[in-house]
Amino acid sequence: MKNFIFALLPLAIFYSCMNSNNNQHTEQEPDTIENIAQDISNKSLLQPCYMAVVGKDSAFLHIEKDNAEVKGKLFYKPLEKDSRNGSFEGILINDTLKLIYTFQAEGTESVQELYLKLDDNKLVEAVGEYEEKNGKMVYKQPQSFDFSGKSFVFYPSDCLDK
């Protein structure tokens, strides 16, 4: 019996040492305002150009960002419908672009509210029901956006000269 205990003693010491190493805590840099701000800023990096393709329809987006303010151009090129070419202005709130898009289609100028959500490295267009208010189309219920990708999903692309 003594031999059995002496044989287990080295294993018990080894196991004890292993557990004491696992219980040591490594110091991590605490979350600071600067670290959190850097993380948020990394998530909200916008690329200057994006392209989306849905079936045979396509769209191109060019963005210029100045802090939270954004502006740029947006072109929709559907296969069997009139294209929409225009410009937008808006703001970046957290991970969402809230835009006012002014465009030409079928020979008339129109104004439409448009939301795009930054998801990973892509922009997903919001789907929602619209209504006309003061000469522009706005989302009827902005709190019930659908960002599931049922509309255009814009991926970073090379910029086109236009």
Rank of each mutant, 00 (worst) to 15 (best):
A68S: 09
F88L: 10
I13H: 08
V127T: 13
F88P: 07
D31P: 06
G107Y: 08
G55I: 10
L114T: 00
Y101L: 14
E64R: 07
K140C: 08
S41H: 05
E131F: 15
F14P: 03
F75P: 00
S110H: 15
T96P: 05
N35Q: 12
E34R: 15
K81H: 11
V127H: 12
K65Y: 06
I40M: 08
A68I: 06
D82C: 10
A105M: 04
L92D: 01
A52G: 01
A126S: 06
S44R: 11
L46D: 03
S58C: 14
I13G: 14
Y15S: 10
D95H: 12
G128S: 00
K117F: 10
C17Q: 02
E89M: 03
G90E: 12
L123C: 11
F75H: 09
A105T: 10
S16V: 07
D95N: 13
I36F: 15
S83M: 06
N67H: 00
I13D: 07
R84E: 04
K122W: 02
H25N: 08
E125Y: 10
N21M: 15
V111Q: 05
E125F: 09
L116G: 00
A68L: 07
D120V: 13
Q47N: 02
Y115S: 00
S58P: 13
F103C: 11
E131V: 09
N94A: 06
F14G: 07
V111R: 15
K140P: 05
K65L: 02
A52R: 02
G72L: 00
K43M: 05
K136A: 07
V70Q: 02
Q24Y: 10
L74G: 01
